[in-house]
Write a protein that binds this DNA or RNA. Structure first.
Length: 347
DNA sequence: TACCTGATAAACATTT
DNA sequence: TAAATGTTTATCAGGT
């Protein structure tokens, strides 16, 4: 199934592959070059991240992952990271991600209601992506074929009425794709037919990248990564609204962003973000509480006039790419309708 | 046009 | 034995 993994039940303690899938030529994050274009007037003018009606696919509505975040996104920077054009360590160094200027999630993620596909419209996701989301949404990160069917049907009503050939396609994908790995069930506890299927750890970034591409293709807004305001901030290493703002600033009684913008910062949300990479070993994850010892970090985001800010703890290793992947992860979770469930630790 | 990828269909073997 | 599951092959469509 998975090249280099030997038998199916071997532990997967290997390191993740390089970031190359994430940095495909099609990836707009290429735009985050040190030699960035100058800002233009094309930056989004209105933002609604913290609006009461967060969109269905707003990841920060309940941003949380099920513990399978890529470790490559979370590892401390390496020299190669620094050389990477997509490296945005300046953001984490500041501990502030000016959301409204870089991540207009609500309009970035959610297509207009009128353009949302109906339940009878075939989802834009490939079968690999559907399988990936299904498995990722399962508590143990492994599902039988039937469980994958059920997840797809329950989350994409199109398949309730679609000709049954799609099930064949699911099985075909599972067998053919290197991204998925078959796990023999414990014979003594085997209930039902067949094996369990999980996602090969080394292919997870690529699967996320596929989701990312779908995400971009089906967003009618330009990529956040091309946002000239963000690019300017990255280029100059400062932002008029967020420069020098740190957690301590928020904890103090002086939440002023700057002398020129004496507005108060109102905490809008508090979220939990899972940042720990979880090995897909069979024994450990099945009994793991997704919230216990999970490496979750807490972040806050704030709204100040038309600007919104994501404030990360000082030692967090999130970069923009990580935030994006978190976003995609969250989308997958929301597609599963289980984000709140997971966030509540109901497993 | 060639190539790649994904979807679909079908045949067949295996397992429960 | 039937149904579900898993594998393999072939074909087609769409994109690059």
């Amino acid at each position: 199934m998975c090249p280099g993994t030997g038998s199916q039940m071997e532990n997967h303690t290997h390191s993740l592959p390089s970031l190359s899938p994430i940095h495909s030529p099609n990836n707009p994050s290429k735009a985050l070059s040190p030699s960035l274009p100058q800002p233009s007037a094309t930056a989004p003018a209105s933002l609604s991240l913290s609006s009461p009606s967060l969109p269905l696919f707003s990841p920060f509505h309940s941003l949380q992952t099920s513990g399978g975040l890529n470790s490559h996104c979370l590892s401390p920077s390496t020299p190669s990271d620094q050389d990477d054009l997509t490296c945005l360590n300046w953001l984490q160094q500041k501990n502030i991600l000016p959301l409204s200027k870089m991540l207009s999630f609500s309009q970035f993620d959610a297509p207009p209601i009128s353009s949302l596909p109906s339940s009878l419209t075939k989802p834009p996701y490939s079968f690999s992506s559907l399988i990936f989301m299904a498995i990722e949404d399962s508590p143990d990160k492994k599902l039988p074929v039937r469980g994958i069917y059920e997840w797809i049907v329950s989350n994409f009503p199109y398949y309730k009425t679609a000709p049954s050939g799609w099930r064949n396609s699911v099985r075909h994908n599972l067998s053919l794709s290197k991204s998925f790995r078959r796990i023999q069930r414990d014979k003594s506890q085997s209930i039902g037919k067949g094996s369990l299927w999980c996602v090969c750890t080394e292919y997870r970034p690529a699967l996320l990248e596929v989701l990312k591409k779908i995400h971009y293709c089906h967003s009618n807004n330009s990529s956040l990564l091309n946002n000239p305001v963000l690019l300017e901030a990255a280029d100059h290493g400062q932002n008029a609204m967020c420069d020098s703002l740190a957690i301590s600033d928020l904890d103090s009684n002086n939440p002023t962003l700057s002398s020129s913008s004496p507005c108060s910062l109102i905490p809008e949300h508090e979220e939990l973000v899972a940042i720990q990479s979880v090995d897909l070993t069979e024994e450990t994850e099945s009994e793991k509480d997704p919230l216990a010892d999970s490496g979750y970090i807490e972040f806050h985001y704030y709204q100040c006039e038309q600007y919104q800010y994501l404030v990360l703890p000082g030692n967090s290793d999130l970069d923009l790419e990580t935030v994006e992947i978190l976003q995609l992860d969250a989308e997958a979770q929301e597609a599963a309708g289980s984000l709140l469930d997971l966030a509540g630790g109901n497993h």
